[in-house]
Structure formats: C-alpha cells, structure tokens
C-alpha cells in the first residue's frame, strides 16, 4: 500500500502571450510523463530507498494559437467538409463598419487559421485560441489534500474545476452556474462561458478548462460547442459589454494596483495573465481550504532554444 503524503503547495506554470497549441500540449505531456514514471517507480516490486521526491502538483495555464480540439470519442469522425469549414480563414472585422476585411495589406488584418488536434480528453469538439485562458492541472487525484484527505474522486475533480471557475468569475462580479450539462454557464444557463474536458491516466489528471475571456466568439459558430444543439457561447468581455461595463468602476476602486499595472485600461486588465493567477488562487483554496501565498509557487515559462525555461516568482 502506498503511503499518501500530503502535498503542501502547488506549482503554477504560466506561459504568457500566445503559445503554439502543440507546444503547450508537449509541456503538459512532459509533466504527466514525470508523474507516471514516478508512479511506476514507487509501485515496482523493488522501489528504491529512499524514494525520490514525488512530482509537484502543477497547474499549467496558457493562451494558445487557434485550434479546434476533438475529444476522445470523436477521433476520426470529422468529415472532409467539416474539416475544410474548421480550417477556413477567420477574417478580421473592420473597426468602423464591422464587416469582414478579406483583402488588406495591413498585417493587423491578416486572417487567422485554426488547426485541428485530437486529444485524449473527455467531452466533444471545442475551440481554444487567443483571448481564452486554458488551464491544465496535472495532479495525482490519489493524493491527500487538506480538503480531500482521501484523494479526489473523478466526479469531485470535475466539480472542483467548475467551482474554481465560478469563484474566478465571482472576482469579476460575474455569476457562473452549473447546469445539467458540464462546464460553466453564464447566469441564464443558456450560454457557456467555460468548457471542460479531462483525461485521467492512473489517476494523473490532464487537460481541464477553457475559459473565454475575450475570445472571438465567431470561432464557435463553426461547431456545435460540446455537442449541445441550441446552446450558445459567451465570454467575460461579452458579459461586461452587455452589462454596460459596470464591472470597470468596481475593479478600479477595489484594485487600484491592478488598474495601474494594466495601464488604467479595463480591457487590458481583463486578460489571461491576471485571470490565470486568480484561477490558480481559487484552485488552491479548493484544495487547501485557504489561500496563502506560500501555497502556490508561480513560475513563468518562456521558450528559449526550443526548450521551456522557467522563472520563479511568488504568487500574489
């Protein structure tokens, strides 16, 4: 029987800017592999003594290049016409007329193209891309956390991802709700704001949440998001627009430090970098009951010489 050692803190690896999706996948795979190798080692007939240190529970956050990902049960089910639709260019919109700009030499109007990737997660086709925060916690669910002394069941884990996302939205005075369909939905339950899909291999988690912050929602028009016909998709910024930016004043007065940090611009402040920090703080609360700076070790990742380099910071 393996002794369960309580984990004292989690590591947050954030990749700032926009990361090629396949690169973020490779980083996640690397984290998972380290865990699986450790598990294989300690459960081998003759485990080494003393045992090497267990890998640290890690949350990887990033914003990827545009990509449609398919869930496990849909592999090879896309038809050629669906594929060509998903791969079609998405044109920039003219700021004055709102019409698509199909021909322009201005690099800021270059059309965007999405890739299609198969993943091992549960759930169905979804979109990830600029303006969205993707959160991949890689943790061993069979580990004792203060709030989960006997480990985390699959259903509790999905619930935790949802409640963490709801708490993050609450920080922006937005109400996220659960419905009979997984994911997190805006208040009415008609439009999804965060998609969810998880893979578990020997109780090691991968994949997780895609939270729309300022995602171009036109990407979702090409798919029936998560297989739910008749339901829509929204983003935090879209909700803010609908409520007449009532969150801006609150943000400015409550967090003058963050307001200044983001150039006194609300649209800049509502960014994946900030929401990622908030999400991981809420996740730490979900696991430890409280959030303290020493519960999360933040590392900012950047790619140099084709390798992931990490710079350490303290969270908060």
């Amino acid at each position: 029987m393996l002794p369960i050692s309580p984990i004292t803190h989690i590591r947050h690896i954030h990749l700032p800017g926009i990361t090629p999706f396949h690169l973020a996948q490779a980083i996640q795979q690397n984290l998972v592999t380290k865990y699986l190798e450790y598990k294989a080692l300690v459960s081998s007939p003759s485990p080494p003594t003393p045992l090497p240190e267990a890998p640290q529970p890690t949350v990887l956050t990033f914003t990827p290049t545009p990509v449609y990902t398919t869930g496990r049960r849909e592999h090879d089910t896309l038809t050629p016409s669906q594929i060509s639709l998903l791969k079609a260019p998405l044109y920039a919109l003219s700021p004055t007329t709102g019409k698509e700009i199909k021909q322009s030499k201005d690099p800021k109007y270059t059309p965007q193209y999405a890739e299609i990737e198969q993943t091992l997660r549960g759930g169905q086709t979804t979109f990830h891309g600029p303006g969205q925060l993707v959160v991949y916690p890689v943790i061993d669910l069979r580990t004792a956390f203060p709030k989960f002394p006997k480990g985390i069941s699959v259903r509790c884990y999905v619930h935790l991802l949802e409640s963490t996302t709801i708490a993050t939205l609450q920080r922006w005075s937005m109400k996220g709700v659960r419905t009979e369909n997984p994911g997190v939905w805006e208040e009415s339950g008609e439009r999804k704001i965060a998609a969810l899909g998880v893979h578990l291999r020997r109780s090691i988690s991968s994949y997780g949440v895609g939270l729309n912050i300022q995602t171009d929602l036109r990407w979702f028009e090409r798919i029936v998001a998560c297989g739910l016909v008749g339901k829509g998709v929204t983003s935090m910024w879209a909700i803010e627009e609908e409520r007449g930016f009532s969150g801006e004043e609150k943000f400015r007065t409550e967090r003058p430090d963050l307001w200044d940090l983001h150039g006194r611009n609300y649209k800049n402040a509502m960014c994946p970098d900030l929401v990622a920090l908030q999400w991981v703080e809420e996740f730490a609360k979900g696991l430890y009951g409280v959030y303290e700076d020493d519960k999360v070790e933040l590392q900012t990742g950047f790619i140099k010489d084709r390798e992931l380099q990490l710079k350490g910071y303290l969270h908060g």
Binding site: A40, G71, R72, R73, L120, R121, G122, G123, V154, R155, Y157, V158, P182, G183, L196, G197, V198, H199, L200, R201, R202
Partner: peptide
C-alpha cells in the same frame, strides 16, 4: 501489464483502462 487498452468516459472525463 499497465498498458492502456481503452478508456471509459463519463461527466467529461476520460479515464484510461489499463
């Protein structure tokens, strides 16, 4: 022993079967 031979999916999570 331990190789993945499939997966079982529920509530948006796919768990490997080994």
């Amino acid at each position: 022993a331990g190789d993945a031979i499939g997966a079982v999916e529920s509530v948006k999570s796919a768990s490997d079967i080994n």
